[in-house]
Simulated scan of single mutants.
Amino acid sequence: MRARALRHVAAATTAASLALLLTACGGEEKKTEDTGKADASASAAAKPDVKALAAAELEKLVVAQADLKGYQVKQAEAEDRLNAGDVGADKPACEPLAEAVSGVAPGTPGASVKRKAVQVPSKDTVSSPDNALGALGVPATTVTLGSYAGQGAEQAFAALKTAGTECAGGFTLLASGEKTTIAKVSPETVTAGDEALGWTLVTQMEGRPFITNLVVFRKANNLAGFMTMSLTGKVKELPKPLIDAQAAKLR
């Protein structure tokens, strides 16, 4: 999973460097997750007045190119569009984290959409002695927006909160037949929406730590997720401009 994700970041960051010369344009994506009907029905019964937004409505609410500067925002590649059934973990409590870090809306969303947002590299970033990969080393973020019926969003958020605690010592992520060992999950401070959670996940690659940042916030019955990584294996900060832009569209 991690090797495949690195290939995707390489392609995305190459596009970002070209964005310095070309005008970037946002993409459109249509995607509906398999919802797990039994759980969704239970949530709706508990809170029948709350309905999940349709994918077409989420397309209007997910962060887009016009919403912020300094990023190239486009639709996710077809191979990035995993479903909940494609992702798991060796510990059941860690499955919500496994889903979120794989770019899957956790729990049982009625619909979800996804975007790729790559930070446009500055001259200082490209020429930095700490960044041997140049423009290919800039951070790339997978943005996922899901909408839930009933109390589904609250339940998914609560499961993530529990996972962040119970899986602090690490877990094995299973995605499309590939295994990735997460060695450590550390909390990060983040404020957005009605409630928000953030973590730094550390994976050992060739004996060196590879850092991934993950943020999820809830606004009403919607969950927005942000998974950030770089080919350098270092992510120094949360993608605050992206988080703020997405939060503004959900007010």
Rank of each mutant, 00 (worst) to 15 (best):
N213R: 15
T200C: 09
G207N: 09
L238R: 04
F171M: 05
V190Y: 02
I182S: 01
K179R: 13
E195V: 14
I182R: 00
T181D: 07
T228Y: 02
K219T: 12
L214M: 12
E195D: 10
G169N: 12
T180M: 07
A168M: 08
E237H: 14
Q204K: 14
G207E: 05
W199F: 15
F210P: 03
V202M: 07
E188R: 15
K234T: 12
G177D: 01
A183Q: 08
M227W: 10
S230A: 15
S230D: 05
R208Q: 12
V216N: 02
V215G: 03
G207Q: 06
T203E: 08
G233H: 02
P209M: 11
L197K: 02
T189G: 08
V235K: 01
L174I: 13
V215S: 01
N213L: 14
T191F: 11
E178T: 13
T180A: 10
G198F: 04
Q204N: 11
M205F: 15
N213W: 07
K219M: 12
A192E: 00
K236S: 15
E237D: 15
R208V: 12
A192F: 06
R218M: 06
R218S: 07
T232M: 10
N221S: 14
L173S: 01
R218N: 08
Q204L: 14
V185I: 09
K219V: 09
V190F: 02
S186Q: 13
P187C: 13
G170V: 03
L223M: 09
K234G: 07
I211A: 11
A183S: 11
V216Y: 00
V215W: 00
G233Q: 06
T189S: 12
V216S: 02
A175S: 14
L231E: 00
R208C: 08
M227E: 09
M205A: 15
G170W: 00
R218T: 01
E195S: 15
G198T: 06
P187I: 13
A183T: 10
T172H: 13
G225H: 02
E195Y: 08
D194C: 14
T172G: 13
